[in-house]
């Protein structure tokens, strides 16, 4: 084996952040780029169902997962994706690290950068923190979720899930329900669905779905039955507990009564409407248990499966991009 890494597919020409070798958000990507990432990911879905999942496409590359916020599924998903692609993966959790000792974000970035990682997957509780970090490191940065800003791989895995079930994204009507104001998942999905030609409706209480979203060209509904009318996809969002005690929403009881997804409200949607949730779910708060567990309607577990394939594709495409440039 030579020291030079294996040549990779040359990705599509691009003028966006992908060209700079980062995936910081969906905003600014074009339909070709998104389609390319989804096509790549599609190829890994079947691969991941095999017994031997190990590839050597990213052999020799180093991937650091830097998580400033707790995460189970996203971190595990990125870790598995990196390992299956053949990269060496380490996880850095903030708990017990020097960050807790007061190191600044940029100092941490410079320190890690000195170790020559090829890929940094970063999650941070502050919007924009991942963009800031990306300016300071040489490797590829993937946004694993920053504050209330973006969570691009979640939107891509949602898109892959939809595309596999419905055949296309274009022309679908998608309702995103819940705490839109604070959701990075919602923002990334809004961008992606807009770019790919789907109609997006936002549903939730006025305190969590402010009218300002209408300026992004979206329909805003506070009445869930009206909002769900004839939609193809229902995306539920997690409601953070601390928002439910009278500040944004008076109680979980009232929230579920008006905005929790149950069969009664779901009946307004198309008969074959698909239900999605990025997890983790609050059963009985934003979604009724029987709806969440409905194997004919709910794609919630499929979303998790698609997550690994999508992240494998993102790792591959970013590394290829860096190698090409």
């Amino acid at each position: 084996m030579t020291k030079a890494a294996k040549p990779l597919d040359n990705p599509i020409p691009s003028s966006s952040q992908l060209a700079e070798g980062h995936l910081l958000g969906i905003e600014g990507l074009n339909p070709l780029e998104i389609g390319y990432l989804l096509d790549k990911a599609e190829g890994y879905v079947d691969h991941n169902r095999q017994v031997d999942k190990k590839l050597d496409i990213l052999k020799g590359r180093t991937q650091i997962n830097l998580f400033y916020e707790n995460s189970t599924r996203t971190r595990a998903s990125f870790e598995l994706a990196g390992k299956r692609m053949g990269a060496d993966v380490i996880n850095m959790a903030v708990e017990g690290s020097s960050i807790k000792k007061g190191e600044t974000l940029i100092d941490t970035a410079m320190t890690l950068n000195a170790m020559q990682p090829d890929i940094l997957v970063v999650r941070h509780d502050q919007s924009g923190a991942v963009n800031l970090l990306a300016q300071k490191v040489d490797g590829a940065v993937i946004n694993g979720g920053d504050g209330s800003h973006e969570h691009p791989t979640q939107a891509l895995l949602d898109a892959l899930t939809i595309r596999r079930r419905k055949g296309t994204l274009s022309g679908l009507t998608v309702a995103i329900c819940g705490d839109i104001a604070h959701s990075r998942v919602a923002r990334s999905n809004i961008h992606l669905l807009n770019i790919m030609g789907a109609q997006v409706r936002l549903i939730g209480p006025p305190t969590l779905v402010p009218k300002s979203f209408e300026r992004m060209g979206l329909e805003v509904h506070h009445d869930m039955r009206k909002g769900l009318k004839d939609v193809d996809i229902v995306m539920m969002l997690r409601l953070q507990m601390e928002r439910m005690q009278g500040s944004y929403v008076p109680s979980t009881n009232e929230y579920f009564h008006f905005w929790g997804l149950d069969y009664e409200k779901l009946s307004a949607a198309k008969p074959d409407a698909m239900i999605m949730h990025p997890g983790p779910m609050n059963r009985g708060v934003e979604i009724a248990t029987d709806v969440a567990d409905d194997i004919d309607r709910s794609a919630i577990r499929e979303q998790v499966e698609m997550g690994v394939a999508v992240r494998m594709a993102c790792l591959e495409v970013l590394c290829a991009q860096r190698q090409a440039s």
Binding site: G246, S247, P250, S251, N253, E254, H257, F258
Partner: peptide
């Protein structure tokens, strides 16, 4: 408007 008229948390206005 607020629970216990304490001026802190909104009530279940919808219900």
């Amino acid at each position: 408007v607020t629970r216990g008229r304490r001026g802190e948390e909104i009530t279940e206005m919808g219900m």
